[in-house]
Design a protein around this nucleic acid. Sequence first.
DNA 1: CTGAAAGCGCTTACAG
DNA 2: CTGAAAGCGCTTACAG
Lengths: 334, 334
Amino acid sequence: MATIGDVADYAGVARSTVSHALSGKRPVSPATRERINEAIAILQFTANAGAKALATSKSSIMGLIVPFTPEEFAPATMQYVLLVSETARNLGYDVLMVTDVDGAGGIARVTESNLVDGVLLMDVKRHDDRVASVLHARQPGVLVGFAEGNDLLDSVDLDFAAAGRMLVRHLYDFGHRHVIFLAFPEELFAQNVGFAWRFRDAVVRSAEELGMTLVTVYGGTDPVDRYRVVGDALDANPDATALLVHNEGALVDLPMLLAERRLSVPQDLSVVSIFPDQFGAMFSLPYTAVEASPRPVAARAVELLALRIAEPDGPVVRELIPPVLVDRGSTRAL
Amino acid sequence: MATIGDVADYAGVARSTVSHALSGKRPVSPATRERINEAIAILQFTANAGAKALATSKSSIMGLIVPFTPEEFAPATMQYVLLVSETARNLGYDVLMVTDVDGAGGIARVTESNLVDGVLLMDVKRHDDRVASVLHARQPGVLVGFAEGNDLLDSVDLDFAAAGRMLVRHLYDFGHRHVIFLAFPEELFAQNVGFAWRFRDAVVRSAEELGMTLVTVYGGTDPVDRYRVVGDALDANPDATALLVHNEGALVDLPMLLAERRLSVPQDLSVVSIFPDQFGAMFSLPYTAVEASPRPVAARAVELLALRIAEPDGPVVRELIPPVLVDRGSTRAL
DNA sequence: CTGAAAGCGCTTACAG
DNA sequence: CTGAAAGCGCTTACAG
């Protein structure tokens, strides 16, 4: 493989000149630059990543810390990963997947060895031991999601609280006062998954403030279980005029459940929901919803990390991406 | 940050001795090993990844070449990625996500710079320009899926042809002679996605050989479209006694479609399918099916790559992972 | 605008 | 069983 020395020899210049021509950190005369470019093309030179990393203490790699749950179905996760990778590439970074069962340990591993220039934490929980691990590292980190008490690391996420308020308000404005709230399984709340809490708390509080009756039902983890739970909730609350669904699985079951009960939307029941846009693209779900794209969140997280790598100090950033409600006419005015 | 020199000084030995204690490539006396371990612990030493890569020409990183389609819904993809990462970690490798729109270019980038020790190509198509890119690289590559004409690179995949034969045979044995085959959208076939072709061709051929009538219907890409297409297929083939579904979206629509038509399974219609196990774990799909786990495929691909990195020569491996049929009683004997 | 040289932190023949 | 030294391929003060 051609090294920078081969290029220098071929072009008849010093290695430092080639290096500077490559990085642009020092002016190089057009003539020599020309010769260098030719040498690079002919010798098919590509800089050795390890050597570069050693010399600069920068690997141009971001570590993406993904909670390790191969058996769990997370529709938006892959999209997140791809968008993170796309944005990172555009900013000159590669992405290393860190899926260690022990997330904090994984962070320590890739930061201590200087493998990465920074880490991106996906699916941050309210109490998340990965935060301490990042704080301890030389390299910066950015959180997707919010950890309680953290005011040292940059964070971004969709504004789930706003989304919850928005959907409740939408139902309220249409005259609904009795609503069934289909939430994620209770296990998810027990695991302190931040977005689930933020959404639920906002929904519960808004409903309270507006004087609405809200029946919260937690979908089970097992799909067959969940089907029954949701059905029971429908049967037990005949007076409810609307359904607010934050549970992708339950959402997919819904058409069947409603068909079984001869309930049509929105004549007999109004339905609103929140789910990743990709989910809506795949399944036939014609409900008014906050149909969130992971794109702005993922892109912003990567941008913040790149900025933080370049500028380790400076004020901590905490960003909420505003949700957008798509009205598909699945709610009826009472 | 502590370097190997710091450790050597602290332990009162040469750097080479520390290096050998770490790698185990040379015997080290228990006494000095003890002192070295203590020094490592106290100084919190972790070897610098870049320096190691430069010295050894090995990065301990595998490049995972993922087709870039952030808007597309691929239920099993994330599971694949996680399983690849898990297996790689167990073998001492980290995983770099390569999601460049130009897959071949991405391979060139990460191999030429010596960033990775080898590449794993996911979702290999029948005609895949990434294969040539791997062939051109210094580092080895393993394919998940089969590329036509490739006999130089190791390949693994689920045996989709066997799965197709298995499901057709199952219906045949139960007396079914008229079957509707719900396949993926035609776009997928146009893109030369290997597993879709292999499954379809096996289904079509088996049905032919067994003298069965098979009506192939391609689900549309748009979910609303698909819903209609599948419904039309049911209405247009009242004599069909069974349904063979290789289309996750259509599968989720099915309960609703059948309910609308007052058809129950398996009394009025027998149903068999094939989908990733995770999909079945999420949705309530009580159908007899080849419920494939990405685990053996992903694990084997990583293993093969690790072996190939260690042993660049040696016979090319081509492995088909046998599918498993799970009988859930959704087929009736005629 | 350009070069010679030191240094980044490892590994690995070579020598003992 | 251990050490001194060269080398991996870059970058970056330093000097001109």
